[in-house]
Design a protein around this nucleic acid. Sequence first.
DNA 1: TTGTAAGCGTTATCAT
DNA 2: ATGATAACGCTTACAA
Lengths: 343, 343
Amino acid sequence: MTVRRMDVARLAGTSPAVVSYVLNGGPRPVSAQTRARVLAAVEQLGYRPNGIARSLRMSRTMTLGLVIPDNANPFFAELARAIEEESFAQGYTLLIGNAAENDERQTAYVRTFLARQVDGLFIVPAHGPAGFLGELDRARTPWICLDRQVPGAAAPGVLVDNRGGAYTATRHLLDHGRRRIACIGGPEDVMPATDRVSGWRDALDEEGISRRAMSVTHSSFGRRGGYGAARELLAGPQRPDAIFVASDEQAVGVLRAIAEARLRCPDDVAVASFDGIPGAAYTTPALTTMAQPFAALGRAAVAHLLAQPAGPTDVLPVALVKRGSCGCPDPPGGDLTGEGAPA
Amino acid sequence: MTVRRMDVARLAGTSPAVVSYVLNGGPRPVSAQTRARVLAAVEQLGYRPNGIARSLRMSRTMTLGLVIPDNANPFFAELARAIEEESFAQGYTLLIGNAAENDERQTAYVRTFLARQVDGLFIVPAHGPAGFLGELDRARTPWICLDRQVPGAAAPGVLVDNRGGAYTATRHLLDHGRRRIACIGGPEDVMPATDRVSGWRDALDEEGISRRAMSVTHSSFGRRGGYGAARELLAGPQRPDAIFVASDEQAVGVLRAIAEARLRCPDDVAVASFDGIPGAAYTTPALTTMAQPFAALGRAAVAHLLAQPAGPTDVLPVALVKRGSCGCPDPPGGDLTGEGAPA
DNA sequence: TTGTAAGCGTTATCAT
DNA sequence: ATGATAACGCTTACAA
């Protein structure tokens, strides 16, 4: 059908194996003369090795899989980007599956990725049931969790310091003199969000602020969730003078709600959030946020997955990025952080 | 090594071929009894067919490849999302390669995707040289261009009505009574941007506005490019009362520049842009934009790629979405358009 | 209705 | 240094 390795061998007047040795640089030496003839034949015929056949033979595909809950969410998109970057650097192609917050799709992706014999699997478990675990337990494929841990399984993962980061952000709001600091968290039981709520609480506890004065609102992730939660919060009896928001994406909605309520940020209500997505640098005012180390996360994730045997769960630090929403001076033109490349 | 089809056959007391017939529902019928035994054996052994071997045999991988110039750009991210969605619906897995605006990476991705025997390839050609063409000409793999056309090759593609859309947006600005409508385009020679500049010019021509009064600034795509271009424009001698911006992403930067110049949008300077990315609904004010039909683009792209023989280039319409930046009432809480799902 | 066997294109292990 | 040949795991045509 297409041009096969044997065709090249024939044209070069040698055997198929030698063609492989030339193309793969081993494992056996080839005389310079034959090598030249082979290369010429490859060029002439436009021969391209069939990676599928190679994978079958080698039982390695040089492919990794990543399943994320929702690629419309900039945080996951950025995480995927970082992992793709590092995978590419390591010679792997990355398969990305978008579960769209749907356990069936999540499981379907794990299944097809496994069927495609990926060499490893990254999973950011969607909120809710984890049917994919059933697919994984029989398989020999290594896999790790990212961003969150899945309740049942004891798979290692790569996480960030959610609690400590939230503490730092809230502490910074306190340092700006804010005292009535509300919290807009994620859905009730989603892991990174609950840890962030804990960090916020730690900071207020330390300051001796009574728990009764601590307002926590649970909202879905996403701009809309943040918008809705903030609307209620701002219309309530005890208007906060600051809000710690569990994600940048929600914070974008919060900013919008503040503007619609004819309040000013940061003057009336200061805001600090979490994630450090690129878009956080270009809101008005720009968002003060705990930036996740995306590039480092990508490197850690790939290294962790490929490591044999797998090490314990990695916890990476997050960094406070001060911009206008907390009351710090708003850097002009957004800052360089997270600037998208031209296109 | 792992559990093979033959192991299942042995346990079920039948032949390997029958196992295939059961699992693939054909091509030959299997008695209900044997079918049950096979299924039980599959379940008991946790057998999962090896997709690589299957692909090799079938010379079909049920995989499509997509190469985009820059996945940090929300427009391409959204396009990728739409294509992934439709590919998944059609039973295909999508391989996404991020060229990072680098022709070498672009070519590398085309090469590896071809080596992996993808059944088809979508390419959004990066600005600049197109080394990937060399990889493609020998290959039998079908491929199409998206968003832009590549100068050399005569590959069909799926595009949108850039010129007409830009005309509509500019016309809308004129209808708001604006007359000094500047244009912030993309890099000099990038196709969709030049067409959009043409559409803007069409509208002003029609209105009888002299070409000398038409200010066009070329900037890189991305927020930073838009920000920089707008800064200069607003500091210039003849401040425009409206700006047509070639992409939403640039428009975000433009909005920021307007705010920093202590001007108000839309009162002092109205803005309309192009693409309809989700983020455009959550700026302050929200962006009036020509929305690309992402879902339809995804469907058209997949259908086009899989169609044999390939049809002519598709051109899809774009739709004016009126929000606050042009002077129309700003819908509260952003509108539903492009709302990210929770995560 | 079921068993057998020939490939798919590669790599690696034999001999030579 | 090189030429045959046996897998890798699957699908399907053909024989029984």
